[in-house]
């Protein structure tokens, strides 16, 4: 086991975008989750929301284990954002395209994790494009260009293992892990 490398990856993004679901879809271990009954606007879509963190693990290559941490989505839990982001080598930002202003939602996480992302890498996964096709991928790239940032953007169904692994692949490609 001496040549095993473990890398910390953060799943963050809009509440209800599917962070917990994504980690559950790929984890090889029984995931740890911290769900509470939702009383905010999340409750309209699902009964529970993450208030602490999610944790799972997946081996992507022989010798490369990704430790997957999911953050709560709501801004009131930004104390957890800071705690979890420490030492992370990549960020998966999930955006719910069916919400009123997905690009503004995205900016919350790009802004908050700005320094962490600058020192590592990020990939953006757009979910629920079946409910709302706009903004499309081009709009996301244009928005990132305006911010002078370059991250891969792709549509995903977070319930599908292969979709989530594809996100992680492109994240790993945009950064060389030692």
């Amino acid at each position: 086991m001496s040549n095993m490398t473990e890398v910390k990856i953060i799943f963050t993004g809009t509440m209800g975008a599917g962070k917990t679901t994504a980690i559950n879809a790929i984890s090889e271990i029984k995931t740890i989750s911290t769900e509470a009954v939702a009383t905010d606007e999340t409750a309209q879509r699902k009964e529970t929301t993450t208030v602490g963190m999610d944790y799972g693990e997946v081996t992507v290559d022989e010798g490369l284990v990704l430790r997957l941490y999911g953050t709560p989505g709501q801004r009131r839990f930004r104390h957890m954002w800071e705690i979890l982001a420490k030492g992370a080598l990549g960020f998966v930002i999930l955006v719910d395209n069916a919400r009123p202003a997905p690009l503004e939602d995205l900016s919350i996480y790009l802004d908050n994790f700005k320094n962490h992302i600058a020192a590592s890498a990020a990939v953006i996964g757009v979910t629920r494009t079946d409910v709302s096709a706009q903004p499309d991928i081009d709009a996301y790239y244009q928005y990132l260009a305006e911010r002078e940032e370059m991250h891969p953007v792709m549509t995903v169904d977070v319930r599908r293992r292969e979709d989530v692994l594809m996100l992680l692949d492109s994240l790993l490609l945009s950064r060389e892990f030692e």
Partner: peptide, 26 residues
Amino acid sequence: TADGFVVARVFKQDIAEKSLAAITSS
């Protein structure tokens, strides 16, 4: 609330109640 909102509080000194509620649930 279990998802981090203030229901009620009684404090002898000023406190950032909203943060405390969110951290409590976490």
